[in-house]
Amino acid sequence: MVGDAAAMNDILHRYQAQGRRHAALVGLLALAALAALVLDLTTGPAGLPLGDTLRALTGGQVSRGAQVIVWDVRLPVACMALLVGAALALAGAEMQTVLENPLAEPFTLGVSASAALGAAVAIVLGLTVPGLPPVWGVSANAFVFAVGALMLLQLLGRIRGGGPEVLILFGVALNFTAAALLSLVQFVASADALQQLVFWSMGSLAATQWPGVAMVAVVLALAVPFSLRASWKLTALRLGQDQAQSFGVDVAALRRWTLLRVGVLSAAAVSMVGVIGFVGLAGPHIARLLVGENHRVFLPASLLTGALVMSLASTLSKTVVPGVLLPIGLVTSLIGLPIFFALILRGRRR
């Protein structure tokens, strides 16, 4: 028996060591995201040297121009990239778990398309939430439409029993409906509005301002503690609804609250920067490969991977074609596409 106890302790130690390794990986991801942020800050059409950028950030001696470029142009954009990536990947990770589908994310469930439709209604038809300053009209509309889409999804799901397959199918239908309505609005739009709209529906960080960054940051900060609190429940749900329920999880409530929480989170993100595809899909899948699916580390790892990918995409969007700022949604889609195919092929092999 003494030998058994020693063997058990050895296994437990190895398990705990694995936990520490995963925590260290999460820490590394955080550092990498930070490094990507600095890289993002140093790239741009103004060609500011790294030294000047760092001096401007730390309050050192730099020209007024450099000060403005770093603090008012690059920093809000770079922070927004991190935050939006984090929000979409966290939302994607939780959606994949509660809907028991590896392809679920804000984009595939129609949240992004609905946000784009909301923006289009504001840009082209001039209809928006009354009483708001005009600069916020487009984002407010996008937010309202995205949250509305989720509410509709939940409502339809509830009527049909709320199973994950039903929610996924409704989400996909919603995606196509929103896309079709978006085309309709584009069809009647003026050339000027159309240009604005096309840019918006490809996702862009260009119009980022500090209040928007603050808004996404606040929503993310509010959502994360709840996500972490639910991490063992979500882990249990990976064993199926019956198992989670027999472990004492109220699965229907978990599904409802998680979708609401990450829905608002992704709506906040896409309402600020437009349609960004694949970060919500790629972030969680990369995180899963790195740390597995214990949601205590999987959720933070997803969040940070999303932030890292989005930040790198932001840098790429400025550097791939010199002198041209590509829409960031285009860049993430191009990065995400190969991952998406790899996943399908991996699924086929299983």
Binding site: Y15, T235, R238, L239, G240, Q243, R288, G292, E293, N294, R350
Partner: peptide, 8 residues
């Protein structure tokens, strides 16, 4: 138990 998770 369902397959497809990467839990230990």
């Amino acid at each position: 138990l369902p397959s497809g998770s990467s839990l230990i």
